[in-house]
């Protein structure tokens, strides 16, 4: 085993879908396992943190880390893996731009904890207990990580070398990335390992999208029948294809749902939501406030629409007027 390049997979604030995408590589991962040595993969293998700590700095050739950073433990693991790895890859939307967990940056920490431990309809908590970072019992101490105020993308915590976008990434992109790693044929640092072009350019519906669109009403996909062959925007559905990086194979469009932006923006964009808003609002019909507003009413949740995966990494990062109550 000794000379094979060491690779680690790790998860932070994520749903498990990214792990699924690794398993989706099917036979390819079995074949790969003859060329690489997996040194950490919590979902599938029994390596421990102390195994990683025992390694020399830079001993791991590459770590693919999925999930956003929300707790002190995730932060600690991200720093440890950064130190031990030559290359750190932010794997999936959450590690790349904060992902779905980043949407909780709209709410104060206390409100989230209160909902999850007390108010949610499915909660059974008769003693009204809250999670504690330390619990003492008969001279023993049990600890839990600190749940932070802010959800962060991986590169808001440690230095990141490459990004693999997607919620979850598709296996072809991941395989390409691993092969590039093994051959040493890597692009410049900071590159997003997916085509740098808008999804529209690869969309089979593009031929039905005219140069000029004027949307007088944004419709919500669950309330209407969607024509499977016509551009979503032409039909009035908020499709983020014009402002989203290609590389997903148009999976949502094939399932007749508009793009929600999980691949993030192209390399010339710094704020995904602002750019997506720009793309969609600019083609609304009307020239008066009233006409425009009535069309925009079809997007009742602009943060959830334009920043579904990108709030943590956005320029504002979170709802800005929540006074933090730091737990340190």
């Amino acid at each position: 085993m000794g000379n094979k390049p060491k690779i680690a997979f790790y998860w932070c604030s994520s749903c498990g879908g990214c792990e699924e995408s690794l398993v989706d590589m099917a036979e390819a991962i079995v074949e790969l396992s003859t060329q690489i040595e997996i040194v950490l993969w919590p979902v599938a293998a029994d390596f421990k943190k102390k195994d990683i700590e025992a390694m020399a700095d830079g001993e791991i050739v590459a770590t693919m880390l999925n999930g956003a950073i929300r707790t002190s433990e995730q932060e600690e693991m991200a720093r440890l893996l950064r130190r031990k790895s030559q290359i750190l890859i932010a794997y999936g939307s959450c590690a790349y731009t904060g992902g779905i967990p980043g949407l909780s940056n709209q709410f104060p920490r206390e409100q989230l904890l209160k909902y999850v431990y007390h108010d949610a309809p499915s909660v059974v908590n008769p003693e009204g207990q809250d999670p504690q970072t330390e619990f003492h019992d008969a001279g023993r101490v049990a600890t839990l990580p600190i749940f932070s105020e802010v959800v962060r993308s991986l590169d808001q915590v440690v230095d990141v070398d490459y990004y693999i976008p997607g919620c979850a990434p598709n296996p072809e992109l991941v395989l390409d990335a691993i092969h590039a790693l093994l051959s040493g044929n890597l692009p410049s640092k900071g590159t997003v390992l997916a085509p740098d072009i808008a999804l529209c350019e690869h969309c089979p519906r593009l031929k039905t999208k005219p140069a000029d669109i004027a949307i007088d009403e944004f419709k919500r996909p669950h309330q209407h029948l969607i024509d499977p062959n016509v551009c979503m925007l032409v039909q009035g559905f908020a499709c983020l294809g014009p402002a989203t990086r290609s590389g997903c194979g148009g999976a949502c469009l094939k399932a007749n749902m508009p793009c929600t932006g999980c691949f993030g923006p192209m390399s010339n964009v710094r704020d995904q939501g602002a750019k997506a808003l720009c793309a969609l609002a600019s083609i609304v019909a009307g020239t008066t406030n009233e006409e425009i507003d009535s069309a925009l009413d079809g997007i009742p949740d602009p943060v959830g629409t334009f920043y579904r995966y990108g709030l943590a990494k956005s320029m504002l990062r979170r709802k800005v007027n929540m006074e933090p109550t730091l737990s340190k």
Partner: peptide, 29 residues
């Protein structure tokens, strides 16, 4: 309105502005 040298650049701005105001308001600005 009607005077933009590029015909409808200001309408494009107006549409973005109406949406952007809602967005920044939901983010606490």
């Amino acid at each position: 309105p009607g005077d933009c040298h590029y015909v409808e650049g200001n309408y494009k701005l107006l549409r973005r502005f109406r949406m952007l105001r809602r967005l920044v308001a939901s983010l606490g600005i």
